Simulated assay, not measured.
Amino acid sequence: MWHLILIPLFLSIYSDRPKTLEDFRWENRLLIVFDQPDSLKNLFEKQKEALEERRLLVFHFKNRKLAESNFPGEVQAESFLKLGSNEKKGWFLIGLDGGVKRKEEILPPLESIFATIDAMPMRQSEIRKKRGSG
């Protein structure tokens, strides 16, 4: 009987912990940005619908600390920082499968990143499903 109490307690503790990079696999695409001079806050507001449609979360780290994100929860910064440990600045696009899909030093216009995402096979499947139901 005690296990019926402990299992929900364990699940609530587990779900409240800060998310690691791995926790987003198969849930979201990630744009991880390191030490870019400009704020990305404006991007989150202007492109909210496009980001949501592509299941794209953006994480901007400055000086090895999370400066801003469109993800409302907490993250374990170290798991993200390992990705860019050899980079002074730059960005990574991570696909749903957790693989690096694109990596560059200078952040291009968001439309370029959207085009990369929209060309991915899983995204093409999402677009087809949306057309079929819409």
Rank of each mutant, 00 (worst) to 15 (best):
R55S: 11
I13W: 14
L66M: 11
E111R: 10
R29A: 04
V33N: 09
I117C: 01
R64W: 07
I13E: 06
K82H: 10
I113M: 01
V100G: 00
R55A: 10
I32G: 04
D38R: 14
R123C: 08
S85M: 07
W26H: 06
A119C: 04
S69F: 11
L40A: 08
R54W: 02
F114P: 05
I32T: 05
A50S: 15
W2L: 09
P8F: 02
K41E: 14
L51E: 13
S133V: 11
S125W: 07
R64C: 01
K101P: 03
V100R: 14
L21G: 04
L21W: 06
K62N: 12
L21Y: 13
K41I: 07
R128P: 00
L31Y: 01
N63E: 15
K103C: 02
A77S: 15
F24L: 08
R25S: 04
A50R: 14
R64E: 14
K82E: 15
I32C: 06
N70A: 09
E49R: 15
E45R: 08
N28L: 05
P108V: 01
K62A: 09
K19Y: 14
A67E: 13
H3P: 00
K41C: 02
G132W: 04
I7Q: 12
D16Q: 11
I32S: 08
N28V: 00
E45V: 02
L93S: 00
K88S: 09
I94M: 03
S79R: 09
H3S: 08
E27A: 13
R102S: 09
R131N: 14
E52M: 06
A50W: 03
H60I: 05
N28M: 07
I94Q: 01
K46E: 15
E53A: 13
D97R: 12
E111K: 13
R17A: 07
I117T: 02
P18L: 05
S69K: 11
S133Q: 15
D118A: 00
A77M: 05
I113L: 06
E22S: 10
A115W: 11
S112P: 00
Q124Y: 01
F44T: 02
D35Y: 08
K129S: 08
F61W: 12
Y14W: 12
P37W: 00
L4R: 15
L93G: 02
G95P: 03
K41Q: 11
E52L: 07
L40R: 09
K101V: 07
E49Q: 14
A115E: 14
Q36W: 12
S12Y: 15
F80R: 11
L31S: 01
L11Q: 10
N86M: 02
F80H: 09
K82P: 00
V58M: 08
S12D: 08
T116I: 03
P37N: 12
I5T: 05
K46T: 08
I7K: 15
S85V: 03
F34N: 05
L11G: 01
M1N: 10
L110P: 07
S112H: 05
I117G: 02
M1S: 14
H60A: 10
K88M: 06
E52C: 00
E78A: 13
F80K: 10
V33I: 13
N42T: 07
W91K: 06
R64G: 02
N28F: 12
L107V: 04
E45K: 09
N63L: 07
D23Q: 10
F44L: 09
W26V: 00
K101H: 09
M1R: 04
P72R: 13
